[in-house]
Simulated scan of single mutants.
Amino acid sequence: MIEQLVDQLSPRDRAILLDLARVRVLTGEQLTRLHFQDLSITTRDRTRRRVLARLAEHDLVTPLERTIGGARAGSAGLVFALGVTGQRALPLLASARDAAGGGESRARRPWTPGQMFLKHSLAISELYVQLHEAQAASQLVLGRFAVEAAAWWPDGAGGLLKPDASACVAHDDIEDSWFVEVDRATESPVTLGRKLRRYVDFARTGQLGPDGVTPRVLLTVPHERRMRDVRNLMARLPPPADQLIFPEFFETATARVVQMLRE
């Protein structure tokens, strides 16, 4: 049954499922930018609604109960995750293991998380979408993007670094590896400082990340007040913090990645 269903999926259907496997949640607007942007303005929203309705009918995707952006956002503000059938179909899709972070797990009915957790998850997804848009604009090649447990990495001291995401981007013969922390100013500066110190310790002991180098750390912040907190924390961290951790406002984070790739 699932095999027959997968055989009927279009390349775009498959890409939607793999993106949801990779980042867990995407809004209708984010899915439009990823998979329907090449359509005309008059047809892209209608086509997205039709495609997602068809996938939802087979429980390949499912809309969560909570929306983002208020009533005016309409279906573009709906948040989608993989349905149970979509989770079961992943092993049959090309590169599904890499997209989902490896390993098979029991399919679970998606649940709607709290607003704070959901907004954080969607911010990580937004960074993924922006990097894809930079790739479409020939500014970089996105070689890898992993979130949640798929991005975690041994810290060399018996524990795990737990970044929100990790990524590898390239341009020409240059390749940059990143750990990503999407900070929304919900943690205390003390807690954030401890997290940043672990990245410094990782680098000081010569540990390597998933791309065979010590990744830089992209720390996105939501506003100027939080940036001041981060700068105060950075001033108290030992070397090589200033060459390792790069704080940036979320809105300009992708541009910073592109800029550093070309330096």
Results as ranks from 00 to 15, higher is better:
residue 224 E to H: 12
residue 227 M to S: 05
residue 220 T to Y: 12
residue 214 T to Q: 10
residue 210 P to K: 01
residue 213 V to Q: 15
residue 214 T to R: 09
residue 209 G to Y: 11
residue 212 G to T: 02
residue 219 L to N: 14
residue 203 A to Y: 08
residue 213 V to G: 03
residue 208 L to E: 15
residue 217 V to Y: 15
residue 202 F to V: 09
residue 202 F to W: 02
residue 222 P to A: 00
residue 202 F to D: 07
residue 202 F to T: 02
residue 224 E to I: 02
residue 196 L to H: 06
residue 194 R to E: 13
residue 197 R to V: 03
residue 219 L to G: 10
residue 193 G to W: 01
residue 206 G to I: 01
residue 208 L to S: 09
residue 199 Y to V: 01
residue 205 T to M: 11
residue 217 V to Q: 14
residue 222 P to Y: 01
residue 205 T to W: 11
residue 199 Y to G: 01
residue 219 L to A: 08
residue 215 P to G: 03
residue 220 T to P: 15
residue 215 P to W: 15
residue 195 K to N: 06
residue 196 L to S: 07
residue 204 R to K: 09
residue 224 E to L: 06
residue 215 P to D: 05
residue 217 V to E: 13
residue 220 T to M: 07
residue 212 G to M: 03
residue 220 T to S: 09
residue 197 R to D: 12
residue 213 V to W: 13
residue 224 E to G: 10
residue 196 L to W: 05
residue 203 A to G: 07
residue 228 R to V: 14
residue 224 E to Q: 12
residue 224 E to D: 13
residue 202 F to R: 02
residue 215 P to V: 08
residue 206 G to K: 03
residue 195 K to Y: 05
residue 226 R to D: 02
residue 222 P to D: 01
residue 203 A to V: 05
residue 216 R to D: 11
residue 206 G to N: 09
residue 219 L to C: 03
residue 193 G to N: 08
residue 223 H to C: 06
residue 209 G to D: 02
residue 199 Y to T: 00
residue 212 G to D: 08
residue 195 K to M: 03
residue 226 R to P: 05
residue 216 R to E: 12
residue 209 G to L: 10
residue 215 P to A: 06
residue 193 G to M: 05
residue 226 R to S: 01
residue 197 R to H: 14
residue 213 V to N: 12
residue 200 V to Q: 01
residue 198 R to K: 10
residue 205 T to C: 08
residue 193 G to D: 02
residue 218 L to C: 03
residue 214 T to G: 04
residue 214 T to V: 08
residue 194 R to P: 00
residue 222 P to W: 02
residue 211 D to N: 13
residue 211 D to G: 10
residue 212 G to S: 05
residue 212 G to H: 03
residue 223 H to G: 06
residue 198 R to Y: 03
residue 202 F to M: 06
residue 214 T to D: 06
residue 208 L to F: 11
residue 213 V to C: 12
residue 218 L to Q: 07
residue 210 P to S: 05
residue 203 A to K: 07
residue 198 R to V: 03
residue 214 T to P: 09
residue 211 D to F: 14
residue 197 R to T: 08
residue 193 G to L: 03
residue 194 R to T: 13
residue 221 V to L: 12
residue 227 M to T: 00
residue 209 G to S: 02
residue 213 V to Y: 12
residue 228 R to P: 10
residue 210 P to N: 00
residue 213 V to T: 14
residue 224 E to M: 04
residue 226 R to F: 02
residue 210 P to A: 06
residue 206 G to Y: 05
residue 210 P to V: 00
residue 219 L to F: 10
residue 209 G to H: 07
residue 228 R to A: 10
residue 194 R to M: 13
residue 219 L to H: 13
residue 218 L to S: 04
residue 209 G to A: 04
residue 197 R to W: 14
